[in-house]
Write a protein that binds this DNA or RNA. Sequence first.
DNA 1: CCTCCACAGGAAGCGCAGGAGT
DNA 2: ACTCCTGCGCTTCCTGTGGAGG
Length: 414
Amino acid sequence: MTGPFDELLKESAIFARRDCLSPHFIPDSLLFRDEQIANIVKALTPSLRGERGRNLFIYGKTGTGKTSCVRYVIEEVKKLPTVRSKISYLNCRIYSSRYRVLSKIMNDHLPTYSKRGYGLVDIYEKLISWIEEDGKVLMVVLDEIDLVKDLDDLVYTLTRANSDIKNGSITIVGISNKISMKEELDPRSLSTLYENELVFPPYNSRELLAILEQRASLGLKDGVYDRAALGLAAAIAAKDSGDARLALKILSGAAEIAENEHREKITTAEVEKASKSAEEELAYELISTLPEHQRLVMYAIATLTIQGGRYRKLAEGTETYLFSGEVYDKYSAIANSMAKQPKSSRWYRKYISDLEMQGLIATYESGRGIRGHTKLIKLDYPAQRVKETIERGLFKEAEANVQKEEPENQETEN
DNA sequence: CCTCCACAGGAAGCGCAGGAGT
DNA sequence: ACTCCTGCGCTTCCTGTGGAGG
């Protein structure tokens, strides 16, 4: 009985339940977040009684447990026998416009309702009459709310809906990790959204250690890890950002290494190895899922960073900044060489600000010493690895395309 | 001082996908 | 099957901006 899947199907020596180490997994109890959970519950309690709840805005850096806490509370609410309160959880990375948010809400609760064909007004009216029909209390959780393009309009529409509804109500829970959001928001939406504000502080290393211990006891086999290894992972993540996601990524990375190298235990050595790549890996995952042309822009930035752009010649500085214009030229050249029509420069500039929002690049306004008014672009991650990541993705795509377009030319090799 | 540079980013509008109504 | 309508990604056109160059 030997076959190609044996290695993969055989029971793991390290993992008990792999999914417990994922940042998306929500354990039965969330450590060090009692106060925050109590606050969320407090804000939502009126809704459960059928009154209008107070809108809630949650702020905290990545990996501080915002989403987990909210999801936890949602699950608890769902267990209650209350029928009138309805909850929609949506991630605004996907539902990134007023229209998408509203139609997702309708789809959540009225699955027969189809996506397109209705205009905004129709959806709005349908939503209101649905709520009014038996005085529903709707809670809308908007995760990564800063990614909604027309946020002011969305908040306005939802508040407006509240005053249009005679029987029932809507409560908004917004989650964001961008502190500057407050300044960018229209004052009117600001005051509605910030009726209640809740801050999630970063975890310290002691807390991260406890979290890792909790997850390790669930997700790993007994005795395959020691406390020192977890402690190191916690310390690394705490020093960097207090990001629990990062801590978990390091731990599961270390476990992966231990498994692949047939170690019987996860030690500080594995953790150290895993920590080098964990943080970057999160970014590379993001890069490889980027839309095609944004990836090409990233590729252009990476190659130019390696070559060193005009700026380095100009002022032989320590770091490489790139001119917006030269990046666009490079991007166009790359697109052309792949027989793809480059997007207009205007759209390219939008790509740049999107990429900056995602934290992949940083940009600065050109100041003294540079002719004209432009943006200086800097890659936030090692250029060589970014380049390789994208190349891997591009090759995969090219292969897939070749197989699709000409499935017959395989006789030259093998 | 004015003019030019090298862009930034808003406004308007276009073609397309795809569902509703007929 | 067709027309109508809407949102979305994108282009085209445009005005704004901060410093360099003459």
